[in-house]
Nucleic acid binder design. Sequence first.
DNA 1: AGGTGGACCCGAACGC
DNA 2: TGCGTTCGGGTCCACC
Length: 277
Amino acid sequence: VPELPEVETVRRGIAPVLEGATIERAEIADVRLTRPFDPAIVADALVGEQIAAVDRRGKYLLVRLGSGRTLVIHLRMTGSLSHAPTGELPDDAYRRATLGLDTGTEVAYRDVRRFGTWELLEPDDLDPYLGARLGSEPLGTAFTGRSLARAAAGRRAPVKSFLLDQRRIAGLGNIYADEALWRARVNPRRPAGELTANEYARLHRAIRAALRRGVELRGSTLSTYVTPDGSPGGMQDEFHVYGRLGEPCDRCGRPIERIVLGGRGTWFCPHCQPEPA
DNA sequence: AGGTGGACCCGAACGC
DNA sequence: TGCGTTCGGGTCCACC
């Protein structure tokens, strides 16, 4: 499940391969990937482009091209990128796109569930596209406990749902939201607008700590996600609550509970993260 | 306008 | 064994 740490890990792995290279061949084998645009037309437009940089914003990968356009890649649930330096990718029924570079390297996009997207944006379209979808970067300087509290003021949705809103915080997903709430000792059901300033200060620190640890460990590998060199991440071995129904809390030893919030599995420690009295 | 729930996918896990 | 059913998760969209 690629969230900010997983996407950042993919970026760090693939950027050295792509940056400076020119795309000689492009094949997009899935109409869903570029919908509503014709995949053949998008592929043709990529050919001849030199890749200037690979950046990340939230869970989006930004492949910046020499023409000024940007290929915006979202891995969604099961997307991943890999590369074969010799240009000989292994057979893969789930490969959805291939880029052949002038360096001789082939880059493969794999996606089992086909939720991922490739969008080729014109220079003027990128900022409005991202601006409409994403709030501040949680590991950047604009993200503070105070800004978090301000954004949450008056909101009655559960704080967990609030944390998952990409227009507030860019890059937090189901796993790291649960982990951050556990670290901050905040119950996921609490209405977002009812947390105290102190709780938002704790939550701010907890979000950054959880994400930074995830980046350090190169993300978490649950089923299909792997880093671009094919190795698994290490964060899954450090989950405090995610997926740990019934297991003892790392702080107090009492069993972790599972509820559903906003249609999403939510794990927490009812003792460390109590409902308000 | 904020909030919620379904659709999109498909393999894995589960139930009979 | 083998079938059918359920589940999940990021984002968008329809609806309240």
